[in-house]
Computed example of a mutant assay.
Amino acid sequence: MTPTMSNIATLDDVRYQEHILQGVSRTFALTIPQLPPALREVVGNAYLLCRIVDTVEDDSALTLEQTRELAEMFIEVVSGTVEAETFARALYPLLSEHTIPAEHDLIKHTPSVIRMTHSFNPVQRQALERCIRIMGQGMAAYQESESLSGLENLAEMDRYCYHVAGVVGEMLTELFCDYSPEINQHKPALMQLSVSFGQGLQMTNILKDIWEDRKRGACWLPRDIFLQEGFDLNDLQPGCPERGFHAGLGTLIGIAKTHLQNALAYTCLIPSHEAGVRRFCLWAIGMAVLTLNKINHKRDFITGREVKISRRSVRATVLITSLLASQDWALKKIFAISSRNLPEVQIARS
């Protein structure tokens, strides 16, 4: 399909996307440029769309009704049935100081982001639209039920992770398969592993952000895992010395590790000559494993800063995985060594 003048992104739109990525994500600003040119713009745009949904969900100044209405409106913006300017004018004045300046700027420039979205091919657009629809509806629903009591059980945590990250894994897989017929040959296996890949990254973020989430009245930990260890999440306080809490945390660390093992299996299905796609995946996996190690070593941490990996660790991860990106045996060995101190927990296969 030949794009019309109304959905052709301008050079200014491309430049804005590259610029704002630096402001809203240190990690993705690092990993997205590793992708081949044919994927960079659409994956960068996909991240910005997800970040807009996150902004709607995270700004505490919005009421539940406003959050639901704005999430639904943005879904329609992405699908092309509501003007991006309408959404930006509705949300921008409502944003509070809790939303970082870069996200204020992103919301203000939603029309620029959407012009990029609408310039992609039909397969890419369909993948983006599906992801944002599932993510937007899911996030709004979970915000309405969030509390300090946590999620009911591990199955509910799985569902939450799917709506905020697993569906992103599916979207990326669709984009990778559209880009490469060779990657597309492995699509069934990749799609099966993609949700687990997303969950491994999301669980790592949930564990890292326990205390920041609690400050805004949310807890995404599963109650059943901790109750099995004799601990009630309603009693959770920073610096909690309870062995039951630390044991439950260890179980979740082990589950996240298993999901990241699946993420590595996913990456090894990408043809070895697609070094950029592999680096994009490997850097995320490597940083997640390092973060889990820090959480595991200091289970009594009270702020995310205490378990944040250093820039030196990031550089080492980038260097090692880049050098060995095409060597599956070496990648598996590195994963085994770097995660050897993490708990071993098996997860049920769907």
Score class of each variant (00 low, 15 high):
Gln22Trp: 06
Ala155Asp: 14
Ser79Trp: 02
Gly150Asp: 11
Val113Phe: 10
His273Gly: 01
Asp54Gly: 03
Tyr162Ser: 00
Tyr160Asp: 05
Gln228Trp: 09
Asp12Val: 14
Thr4Ala: 11
Val53Glu: 10
Asp178Arg: 05
Arg159Pro: 04
Asp213Ile: 02
Arg130Phe: 11
Glu152Met: 04
Glu65Phe: 01
Ser194Thr: 11
Lys294Thr: 02
Thr63Ser: 15
Ala288Trp: 05
Arg299Ser: 13
Gly166Ile: 15
Gly200Ile: 00
Ala155His: 10
Ala140Tyr: 11
Ser149Thr: 07
Thr10His: 10
Ile8Gly: 03
Phe176Arg: 00
Val53Phe: 04
Thr4Lys: 11
Arg279Phe: 04
Trp283Ile: 13
Glu18Asp: 14
Cys281Phe: 03
Ala165Lys: 13
Arg159Met: 11
Asp224Tyr: 09
Asp328Trp: 11
Val14Phe: 09
Ala263Arg: 01
Leu269His: 02
Phe176Glu: 01
Leu94Ser: 00
Lys298His: 14
Gly80Cys: 04
Leu148His: 05
Phe301Val: 12
Asp13Thr: 13
Val123Lys: 11
Cys281Leu: 01
Pro37Asp: 14
Tyr92Pro: 08
Glu146Gln: 13
Val113Arg: 08
Arg68Leu: 03
Gln66Pro: 07
Ala38Ile: 08
Thr303Asn: 11
Asp235Asn: 13
Leu94Pro: 02
Gln124Lys: 13
Pro37Tyr: 08
Ser322Gln: 00
Gly200Gln: 03
Glu57His: 15
Met191Glu: 13
Leu290Pro: 04
Gln202Val: 01
Thr267Phe: 02
Ala165Asp: 02
Cys131His: 01
Met287Glu: 15
Pro188Val: 01
Ala141Val: 10
Pro93Tyr: 04
Phe231Thr: 12
Ser79Tyr: 07
Ile132Met: 05
Thr67Ser: 14
His118Asp: 09
Thr267Lys: 01
Thr99Val: 14
His259Phe: 15
Ile183Glu: 03
Leu319Asp: 09
Leu172Arg: 00
